[in-house]
Every structure is written in structure tokens, then in C-alpha cells.
Simulated assay, not measured.
Amino acid sequence: MRKIQILLLLILSQIAYSQVKNTDELYKKAKKLDSLIFDIGFNTCDLSHYDSIISDDLEFYHDKGGITSGKAAFTASIKNNICGGPNKVKRELVPSSMKIYPLYNNNVLYAFIQEGEHEFAELSNGKWIKGSLAKFTILWILDGKSWKMKRVLSYDHHL
């Protein structure tokens, strides 16, 4: 009987700490943060809120572009290459690809992992031309009462 109780407890703990549903408040928060980074920041070049949602010691790993270390370098990269470069690029989250995995310490939420797929397009002669499809993983850390993007992996870029 004791073995069954332990097994049941292990199963229930895995369910409690696995991927959250898209109706969960944490999922909605992640969707909003994703929109702030990409829809508003990356796509419209409004980077004014980056300071409040990007960790000073951000690490961004890209399978084609290498490593970007720090908030200032990341923000400058978006500003100079996406917003100020000759080729405008936009990013769209692939519908239904986003998954959120909460991370707890002593039953207290301290971070979450966001993963999904995103598509990119380039503006050419006034038209958006489909570009690469890629996977991403982002570690968001709760810093006081604010969520900060801390570690990013962007990989498996292909047409």
C-alpha cells in the first residue's frame, strides 16, 4: 500500500509541475511578455520597455548569429540590425506552438521556461517574404515582482 501511495504522489507532483494550460495565468503572462519582446519590440522597434523585462546578464544563443551577452548588447543588436538595418525583419509566433513550464523552489514559483516555434519574414519591395522557421527556448526569472528574460536559445533555423 505504501508503494502505491508514493507512486501516486510522484505522478501527481509531475502533473502539478508540468506544462501549464493556455488558460492558466502564467501562460497568459508569458504570451504578454513574448508580445512585448517580439510584437512590440522586434516587429515595431519600440524598445522602450526592454530595460524593464530583460535581465542585465542576458545570454542569447543563436545557431546562426552566435552569442549575445548582456541587455545592452542585445538591445543594440535589435536596434542596429533589425530596426536600423537595410532589411526589415518581422517575427511571428507559430500558433499553438508555445509551451510554458513553471519552475518552483519549495513550492514557490521563481521562473518559467517558454518554448515554441517562430517564423520570420523579410520586407522586400514592399512585400513580406517568408523566411526561416526556428525553435526557441526562453528562461524567464522572477526578479522581485518583475519577470526578466534571462537566457534565450534560438535554433534549428531552416527555410
Rank of each mutant, 00 (worst) to 15 (best):
L7P: 05
L8I: 08
I11Q: 02
S13A: 05
Q14A: 14
A16D: 03
Y17H: 14
K21T: 15
D24T: 03
L26Q: 07
Y27T: 09
K29C: 12
A30Q: 04
A30W: 00
K32T: 15
S35G: 03
S35C: 08
L36D: 03
I37R: 07
D39N: 06
I40F: 10
N43I: 05
H49P: 04
S52G: 06
I54E: 00
S55I: 06
E59I: 15
E59W: 11
E59K: 15
E59P: 07
Y61K: 14
K64F: 15
T68K: 15
T68G: 15
K71Y: 10
F74C: 15
T75L: 10
A76N: 14
K79S: 03
K79T: 06
N81L: 06
I82T: 05
G84P: 04
G84L: 02
G85L: 04
N87H: 15
K88I: 03
V89K: 09
K90G: 11
E92N: 09
L93G: 01
L93W: 00
M98S: 02
I100H: 08
L103R: 13
Y104N: 12
Y104G: 13
N105Y: 13
V108T: 08
V108Y: 00
V108W: 06
V108E: 12
L109S: 00
A111Q: 02
A111D: 00
F112C: 01
G116C: 02
G116P: 01
E117K: 14
E117V: 04
A121V: 00
A121N: 01
E122W: 09
S124N: 08
K127D: 12
K130S: 02
S132T: 03
L133K: 12
I138K: 10
W140I: 10
I141N: 12
D143G: 05
K145S: 15
K145R: 13
